[in-house]
Nucleic acid binder design. Structure first.
Lengths: 233, 233
DNA sequence: CGTATTTCTTAACTTAAGTGAACGAGTTAT
DNA sequence: ATAACTCGTTCACTTAAGTTAAGAAATACG
């Protein structure tokens, strides 16, 4: 049926020695993965470039962020969050792809993909209740993983971050509403064609059956729909 | 086809004299409506009760908000925002109901309803581009209407508001994702039954054809679906 | 390397939504 | 008062998605 995935985390070029930990209730190990410094620097720049679109940071502020040791490399298939579990972690995708999915009647329903430059604060972090859904890695990925405490700390130290978070959330909310509107007002075929325009990469890098539920249909329907589109041309 | 609606605004018990204005490109009038002080006080309390869930305000801060003269009463049918127009206005519904709708192929597609205690910052305020959609009043309503400048001013004066806006946006974003997920993973019939549970008032106060597009289907399908549900029982 | 598993596609059939049209009830306009 | 219009419902028909099943293609794994 559904393959069980092994959580597997790694600090990215941390100055702190890498210690394998046993942590989750299910006893799955969090293991460090192999990384290199140039990769790490690329990721730092990616993060700071993103932030600079919202606020400009001093060196002190950049160092305060780096001191939080947020970078993690995560293997394809890793489950970051499980249904029924509590979590305080928010994610920012520097490289790779993660997804939200539900298991309903023994079937996976993928509802969202997060790729490069996408930020995700799971609902359970906000509601402080057990999670309704799973989050897992579609590809080997590099993420920042930050918990609520870190954010409270950094926000109170640097009001700039508070502002950035507000602007970012407002933007994402308005965009989510637009995506939702587009979904409601179009047919599965239109949705697929639209995705082909707006996120062509997703169709390449993501399995069809995950794409299908993302489009609100069954895998068989997506297959048929694609065939229909091809013969039209 | 589609009835043209007359914009019609009114300050609520304002200290400023009520001046009818001619303002929109279409030359529609913005007229004051009849209100009374007790109503006004109720609305103030509703607003401050809402805010108090996020931050606690001093009298000074409350007065600073009141000084912005945000309250407006709006008649049923009033168009608050038109497709193609730019706007800086955000809304908070104290009483009544407003909706977002698109006009596609000469047909209205309603994608969202905002009722008591709902906040709405239109996409065009964030994107600073012309609006993709309309916003209009489903019922006679009382709103707060605030523009970006006001928010910048009040946020810089009272960092508390910045924090409140951040928390609120984060909450709304997480909730919107959940609503979107529910929509994607259920059939029109399930969506209707779910709405019956979660927002039973909406089904009473909103016309069926608006509900239909909100549920992502045609009015005929909603009618049929309701009949189907009835005969099942 | 070959076997097992997962993933994708195809097909036949069922079910439900889209379409176009018609009707009655209620509302608005003249 | 009547004509025009909106709104919700119903019906017949079309189209597309859900379901079940089977097989091919790709991938994972021993």
């Amino acid at each position: 049926m559904i393959r069980q995935e092994e959580p597997c985390y790694g600090r990215l070029s941390s100055t702190v020695p890498l210690e394998p930990k046993v942590e989750t209730p299910l006893g799955t190990r969090l293991v460090a993965s192999v990384t290199d410094d140039s990769n790490n620097n690329t990721m730092k720049n990616t993060l700071f470039d993103f932030i600079s679109k919202y606020v400009s940071l001093t060196e002190d502020e950049k160092n305060a962020i780096l001191a939080l040791d947020l970078f993690r490399s995560v293997k394809k298939g890793t489950t970051l969050l499980k249904e029924g579990h509590k979590s305080q972690d928010s994610y920012f995708v520097l490289k790779g792809c993660i997804r939200i999915y539900y298991i309903m009647d023994g079937e996976e329903k993928t509802t969202a993909f997060y790729t490069e430059m996408d930020a995700l604060t799971p609902h359970c972090v906000i509601s402080k209740a057990p999670s309704e859904y799973f989050i897992s890695c579609v590809e080997d990925s590099i993420l920042t993983v930050s918990n609520s405490d870190m954010e409270v700390e950094i926000n109170s130290k640097f009001p700039k971050f508070e502002i950035m978070c507000r602007i970012l959330s407002e933007e994402l909310l308005a965009k989510k509403q637009m995506d939702f509107d587009e979904f409601k007002t179009s047919s599965p075929e239109q949705r697929y064609l639209n995705l082909l325009q707006s996120r062509p990469d997703l169709i390449q890098r993501v399995p069809q059956h995950q794409l299908a539920s993302f489009l609100g249909i069954k895998p068989q329907s997506l297959s048929r729909l694609r065939a229909r589109i091809l013969e039209k041309k």
